[in-house]
Amino acid sequence: MSVFIDQSTRLVVQGITGRDGSFHAKQMIEYGTKVVAGVTPGKGGQRFENTIPVFNTVAQAVHETHANTSVIYVPAAVAASAIFEAADSGIELIICITEGIPVLDMTRVLPFVHERGARLIGPNCPGLISPGKSKVGIIPGNICKPGKIGVVSRSGTLTYEIIHQLSTHGMGQSTCVGIGGDPLIGTNFIHCLAAFAADAETAAIVMIGEIGGTDEQRAAEFVKEKVKKPVVGFIAGQTAPPGRRMGHAGAIISGSSGTAADKMAALAKAGISVMKRPADVVPLLQERL
């Protein structure tokens, strides 16, 4: 078993003929993900790489190919609309890679997705990978190894750094999930921690947070009460100044809340081993396993 995606994942790629969509669709196919359809309005009837059927709408793609998962690579201006469309077409799991969706759009998208019973991962995220099984998004497959560590992170390349540390020290991963760097996201730490806690293949969990908001603090409470597996955590942004957006729309210390120090203290208090730097991940996991 793995978390959120596995061999039964049937993927539709929204924006499959675009620059990013086509590049990553090929990478996902090479990795072994079952890409069953693509969607680009106006290009219905074409075939991507001479094999994958392209449709005008997600509804058609679902009807014809029984896609159950969607990944979105469309530009920010139309990304909220793409999430609405996926949720409205019966897609169960929507992964939105696109960065730059206005947060007010997300205030309308999130209740809609919830009402349709779908799960959204992201936006502004690298997606997820279950090494050796399936990958949806942009996490480079070659740095991952199958194994027992679950990874959940608000970041992209910082996650690659941590995965790289794990893989080069023989610690494979069950699933790695990038939940996204925006202030309003569909799937948070707690959702992922709960999934990893229930996953028989996951022995320990690495959570990578950053400044801004209080999601990590609430996750720490959840770990204390509900998660029996060892958890190791990292918080990026100890040197970030208050009031400035550190690249990610959600990475901002507002007044005195959302600092790295607060989050690290909350993690430690909940029994999570807190890394001081990314290279601590392996020794801390070894201590706890």
Partner: peptide
């Protein structure tokens, strides 16, 4: 490259 890695 990347905001999280930049902060780290």
């Amino acid at each position: 490259n990347g905001a999280g890695l930049a902060m780290a």
